[in-house]
Computed example of a mutant assay.
Amino acid sequence: MALRLVPYLMMNGDAAEAIRFYEQAFGAEVLFKQTFGEMPENPEFPLPAEAKGLISHAMLKVGETDLMFSDKFPGQPHQTGDQVTICISSDDKEKSKRIFEALQQGGQVKMPLQETFFSPSYGIVTDKFGVTFQIYTEDQK
């Protein structure tokens, strides 16, 4: 059962620029990059035009380490210093659930643990110390 902790940078509309910068600074390799406009459409929540070119998710390989990125969705608050979260990546839904439930004790759920188009079990929680974690379960196809 694999478990990894990955730094996740939440940017304020400049994720593409940051990716190019870190790609050069670290000699990093872009493993994945997707904009909100490239995501599957949800007719219940039409995508605003200003969001289409923003990065919904990207991953760089920096040496032996992964570094993830996303732009905050338009309208979401952004405060400098809050843009770094930790993504906990697991290959087991039950382990993800146990971790999520433990972290939410005395904390605040930002997004309930749920199935998404990119993960069988994903959620966001800020623990009682103010550290925000994204719990991501890898799809075992």
Rank of each mutant, 00 (worst) to 15 (best):
F129S: 15
F73L: 00
M39T: 06
V62Q: 01
Y136M: 15
F118E: 06
F21H: 12
V62H: 04
Q134L: 13
G37Q: 07
L47D: 09
F36Q: 05
I135A: 08
T116N: 02
A15D: 07
G13C: 08
R20K: 10
M11D: 03
E29F: 01
V125I: 11
D82G: 15
G107N: 07
A102M: 07
F118R: 03
H78S: 13
S70Y: 00
G27A: 03
D82M: 14
S56G: 10
L3M: 12
E44H: 00
K128R: 15
K141H: 13
E29Y: 00
A25E: 01
Q140A: 10
F45L: 13
T137Y: 07
T137Q: 04
F32G: 04
K61Y: 02
P74K: 12
Q24S: 13
E115H: 00
K141D: 11
N42T: 07
K33Q: 14
K95E: 14
Y22A: 03
F133S: 10
V62T: 04
L5Y: 11
P43L: 10
Y8R: 09
F26E: 04
K52F: 02
F21L: 12
R20P: 04
D92Y: 12
P77T: 04
G75R: 05
Q140F: 03
E94Y: 06
A28F: 00
M39R: 09
Q140E: 08
V125Q: 10
T132E: 10
I88N: 05
V131I: 15
F129N: 14
D14Y: 07
I19A: 02
I135T: 06
K52W: 06
R4V: 14
F100C: 03
L67M: 08
D82S: 15
F117Y: 10
M11Q: 09
R98N: 11
L5W: 07
G63A: 04
L113M: 11
L113W: 11
M111D: 05
P77F: 03
F69S: 00
D14I: 00
Q105L: 12
A102F: 05
K93R: 12
D127Y: 01
L113A: 07
F69V: 01
G75Y: 02
E41G: 11
T116E: 05
L60Q: 05
F100V: 02
G63W: 02
Q34M: 14
I88M: 12
Q79K: 12
H78I: 07
G53E: 14
S90Y: 04
G37E: 03
S90N: 06
M111A: 01
L31G: 01
M59T: 14
I135W: 05
D91H: 09
G130A: 03
S90V: 12
F69P: 02
Q83G: 15
D139Y: 11
L47N: 08
G63M: 00
I86D: 00
A2C: 03
L47R: 08
K72I: 13
G123W: 02
N42H: 04
D82E: 15
